[in-house]
Design a protein around this nucleic acid. Sequence first.
DNA 1: TAAACTAAATGAACATCGTTCATAATACCA
DNA 2: TGGTATTATGAACGATGTTCATTTAGTTTA
Lengths: 201, 201
Amino acid sequence: MARRNDHSRDEIREMALAAAEKIISEQGAKGLSARKVAAAIGYTVGTLYLVFDNLDDLILQINAHTLDQLHDRMLEEQARHKDPMERLLQLGHTYISFADEEPHRWELIFEHRLPEGQQPPGWFREKVARMFNLVEASLEPLAANHSPQEIKQAAAALWSGVHGICILAISRQLDVAGVESVQDLTHSLMSNYLKGFITPG
Amino acid sequence: MARRNDHSRDEIREMALAAAEKIISEQGAKGLSARKVAAAIGYTVGTLYLVFDNLDDLILQINAHTLDQLHDRMLEEQARHKDPMERLLQLGHTYISFADEEPHRWELIFEHRLPEGQQPPGWFREKVARMFNLVEASLEPLAANHSPQEIKQAAAALWSGVHGICILAISRQLDVAGVESVQDLTHSLMSNYLKGFITPG
DNA sequence: TAAACTAAATGAACATCGTTCATAATACCA
DNA sequence: TGGTATTATGAACGATGTTCATTTAGTTTA
C-alpha cells in the first residue's frame, strides 16, 4: 500500500503531533517512540520522516504547542484580575497548576536536550521569552521606584523561583522538605520576595 | 576468558562508577550506555549486571555520589562563615557553583526518572533531605520570631528558588530574560526573600 | 598430581530503538 | 490506456538494555 492520499502532509503532521502528545501525557518522555506514533495514526515509521526531520524536531513542536497552551492560559487568568499584586500571584499559580495537570508535557519542555552544541530555533526561544515578558509586565506597576534593569532581574528571580518549585514538586522532592501545599509555598515565595523587593531600604 | 579474578566485585563496582561518571561529565546522560561503561573498564556488558541491577541502579549510585560531593562542599563552605546571613547566602552560591562546574552530573540528579510508580530508595531520599536540612538549620538563627513550620516552608522556598535558577541557567533559558550574572540573580532572590520573610508586618 | 567442583566472566541472543532509502503502489495526466 | 510523478512502505543498519546458557579458570578434594 502506497500513495493513499488519505491525508495531506499537514493533516499527517497534526495527527502525529496529537498522537505523540497523548503518549507523552500518559507515559512520559520515555514512552515515546517513532513506531508508536506511526502506529497510532495508521502509518509507518518512514512516513513520519517525511513530515519531521527527526524525533527531536517532533518533540520541539510538541513543546511549542505546550508553551502556546500555557501562555494562553496565563493570558486568560490575567484578564480575571485587576489588582497588580493579584495578577502577579495569579501568574505563579497558573504556572504551577498547569505543571500539575500536565506534568509530563510540562517537564518535556525543560528536560528535552538537543544534541551537543545545537540550540533551539529562534521561534522557540521567542515563545519562552513571551512567557517571561508576561511576568515582567505584571511586575512593572508594582515596582515604580526600580530601574528597568532591576525589574528584569526581579522578574527572572520570580520566574526561576516558581519554576524551581514546579520541578521539585513534580519529582516529589519537596516531600522530604515537609511541604504540604505547593500553592502555599508558591505564595510564600512570591509574596515574601516582592515584599523585600518593593520595600525601600 | 572467564574467571579472571583480576578485581573484586567492589573494585569492579567502583571502576564502573568512575567510568560512568566520566562519560556523564563529558557527554551528558545521553552519552551513557552499558556497553561503553563495560568497555571503559575492560569488561563486557554481562559483568555490569553482576554488579548493578540495571542502568537505573547505576545512575542512582552515581547520583548518590554527586549528592555526597555537593553536601561535603556545602559543609566546607559553611565552616568559612560565621555570620548567619552570609552562611545562608553562601549555601546558595555553592549550590550554583557546583551546578555550573558539573552541569551534566548535577542535572542527572533531577532529570533521572525511575520507571512509572517506582520511588527512589530511602537512603537516596535521605541524602536529599540532609541537604535541605542544611538550609533549614542556617535559616533558623535568622528567623527567631517564626514557628518551626514557617521556617521549614521558608527553607523550602529558598531551596526551590535557587534550584530553579540553576535549572534555567543550565538550559540557557535565562538568556532570554536578559540575566547576565547568575550569582547576582541568586543573591537577589535570596536576600529579597529573606528581607520580606524576616521583616515584621 | 589428577579429577571434581565452584565461582566468574563471557558474548550470543532478543526485543526495541532512531533513521534511511530503494522499492512498490497508487493517483494523475496526456 | 499508457506513462509519469508522487506517496507510502518496510526491510535494513547500527545501537540500545537485558538475560542466561556456556565456557573458563581458580579452588578443593581424592
